[in-house]
Design a protein around this nucleic acid. Structure first.
Lengths: 210, 210
DNA sequence: CCAAAAAAGTGCGTGCACGCAAATTTGCGC
DNA sequence: GCGCAAATTTGCGTGCACGCACTTTTTTGG
């Protein structure tokens, strides 16, 4: 039960943070306000989030890590590792409910929120490591970790590119490259990693059938 | 001259930070002390570093980013991209002067410093992106960026592993895996990325000689 | 059902990061 | 040299993150 309650207050906090940020603008939200809106002490808020930005962004990105890992695990063994990973990620970043258009606008606008949003990509690393390790079997444990970290880095690059171009195109009169869709961008940035994923997979197969 | 002076005070600050941290222990060093020791206002210190940990670690890792990029650029075109990158990195993380044994001990001991040290890997991303882009020619600009980010991530994994095992083996009576040497660890974590680097290089070559 | 232990929440104090605007230094053309 | 514009430094004020010790709640074992 303790886990349930913890997740509940966590959600309450991030929900309150996002709501207040949208209502008043992120600069007019004090930590005390968030805590009060969530019905906990300010100090408790700090036990869950170490920055306002983190709390706000969490309302949008919550659980994505787990969903990505699960999505990778769910792909049938028939499809290659590279495809499994790429499609799982594209799916999760195209998922419905992703938006709250106004929330995304807020995030893309404020640099601090942009940064916090981008940093959430590192959260997929651990779950993704497990998912990849599962598929590769128990070969060298470093491999899965490096691959997962690389995938997360590629996703981060895609988000940076996406946020940068969209931010630019919304402010300037715009001879910027038309901001491609996020799914396309993700496929593009993940593409250079497929040789590495394929190679690791082949290694694992050879290891299993010597 | 402007740049010179800025680098000078930057170095003075990080040097003072490291010296004081070694003398008194990192927890007994106030920001005001560092600023005073460097002969600037506390506020100025904050213009250069956004945390004490950053300042301390910078005394050890300074300029490494540039050195890695230069080292990659310097490898003759004969050697493959993957080898160039791996060897350049191994060199820079084995460079003499790296240590200050006591400084490294301090860093490995305190978690906050460990984290700051690990985060310095992201700094090599931009220079390395340029170096790799140089070698790949002006194909898709995202590729170099993703590869550089992946390499940085792999280096980060190596450092994490290295710091973890060394920390463990120095505190416990130790049935931990004997902490491998950092160069070995780096080669191991970078290995899974060589297929990606090779593939990008081949693509670039084919693109140049259609 | 009840202690006792474990875990989560809380209050307080300390240092700090950072925005802002005034003061100081630096670079440069004349 | 001279003064002006840009960049840098500085002081100040505000909010905040986080360690610590303590209280309240939940879990556990007898």
């Amino acid at each position: 039960m303790r886990e349930q309650k913890k997740q509940a207050t966590r959600e309450a906090l991030s929900a309150a943070a996002l709501r207040l940020a949208l209502e008043r603008g992120p600069d007019n939200v004090r930590v005390d306000d968030i805590a009060e809106a969530a019905g906990v002490s300010p100090r408790t808020y700090n036990n869950y989030f170490s920055s306002r930005e983190q709390a706000i962004v969490a309302a949008v990105t919550s659980e994505r890590e787990a969903r990505v890992a699960a999505a990778v695990a769910d792909r049938p063994d028939g499809v290659g590792l590279a495809d499994a990973v790429v499609e799982a990620i594209v799916d999760q970043y195209t998922a419905p409910g992703e938006p709250g258009r106004d929330a995304l606008l807020l995030i893309t606008t404020r640099p601090a929120l942009r940064d916090a949003f981008i940093e959430t990509t590192t959260a997929i690393e651990h779950p993704l490591t497990d998912a990849i390790a599962e598929r590769l079997g128990d070969t060298d444990p470093h491999t899965a970790r490096v691959l997962a970290a690389s995938v997360a880095a590629a996703v981060r690059v895609a988000l940076q590119q996406w946020l940068q171009t969209t931010a630019a195109s919304s402010t300037t009169s715009g001879l910027v490259v038309p901001s491609s869709s996020l799914p396309d961008l993700l496929r593009t940035t993940l593409a250079p990693l497929t040789p590495a994923l394929d190679a690791a997979e082949q290694r694992a197969l050879r290891h299993r059938h010597p």
